[in-house]
Design a protein around this nucleic acid. Structure first.
Lengths: 163, 163
DNA sequence: TTTTCTCCGACCTCATTGGTAGGATTAATC
DNA sequence: GATTAATCCTACCAATGAGGTCGGAGAAAA
């Protein structure tokens, strides 16, 4: 699997926050029950979103979480970056990586590496799909209503028949 | 990392076969030495490519592997499918998967699932990038020569600045 | 018949995933 | 001010898969 459950749970959490958008923060417990996800694990996941500035928290009784911005201003590449880290099709694509196993000189910009070209295209495909999708769209899907907010160019395509 | 070293090593193996294309099969040992990859592991990887019909083998002395088709007829989505299995951004996308953890009804086609929409787009982005890239292109890159074979539509874009 | 290959299955080690447990802190409310 | 409901934080833990290794069994050329 490409993405882990962090991405799945984290995005669902964001969608849930987007649906319940109001003046009062939403307690994680209610989301955990709604989505039937383990609360303790969700706590760690929402911490990632908070650190990335996508979510704000209020402590204490009647506390909880709310979106830091309008859902239409939150793109999925930001969310996935926060949840999973940099989208890299191969380990040596990470900045910090000194993966000794894959000793192709991917990192060496000057040398033309055949596989690097391929992974760059894949990376581009993923980040495009992510950046073109906003949280507002997903919230609209979850509410089974047509998209109201103006989506980013190209985002109205489901893209899933494009393979 | 999205793909494992199987994809990296396997694609490099294919590129190497594409470069040394001739009448005689290429022994795995020479490829392992060229690319500095563990031979025993490469053996298992090339078995995947053979099973998928991308590669043919000759046993015995002076034996080895050759491409089953012209490099321009081998697209990377076939290769990755053989090496890594189905490209699925989330575990429940696999046919055989009954992943009890992710209990979103991704599999249920009738129900609109917000995250499913997202993963479908990602999947589409990856498979597009892969299917638009042929082995012939990568071989050309490895030989530091301009692409001669007519690439599939859109394949001439590196796509990596598209993010 | 030895050498050089492909083939095949068992095994092994390590890192990551997907959690859990237990508590500390903060703030509203009785 | 005690209780309660929430966020925060760190440590631990089991299962899985990744990335190999090892040893040998066929097959074909010299």
């Amino acid at each position: 699997m490409i993405f882990t459950t962090k991405a799945e749970y984290g995005v669902r959490l964001l969608v849930e926050l987007g649906r319940q958008e109001g003046d009062r923060p939403v307690a994680l417990k209610s989301i955990a029950e709604n989505e039937r996800l383990p609360l303790a694990y969700l706590e760690r996941i929402v911490a990632l979103l908070k650190r990335a500035g996508l979510v704000e928290s209020t402590r204490g009784a009647h506390g909880g979480y709310r979106l830091a911005r309008d859902p239409s201003e939150i793109s999925m590449d930001e969310a996935i970056l926060a949840l999973e880290g940099e989208v890299a099709p191969m380990s040596c694509f990470y900045d910090d990586s000194s993966d000794e196993r894959v000793l192709c000189s991917h990192a060496d910009e000057t040398e033309v590496c055949a596989t690097r070209v391929l992974w760059l295209r894949v990376q581009g495909g993923v980040t495009q799909a992510l950046s073109r999708t906003t949280l507002a769209e997903l919230v609209a899907f979850a509410q089974r209503e047509p998209v109201e907010t103006k989506p980013t160019a190209g985002a109205e395509l489901p893209l899933h028949d494009a393979a």
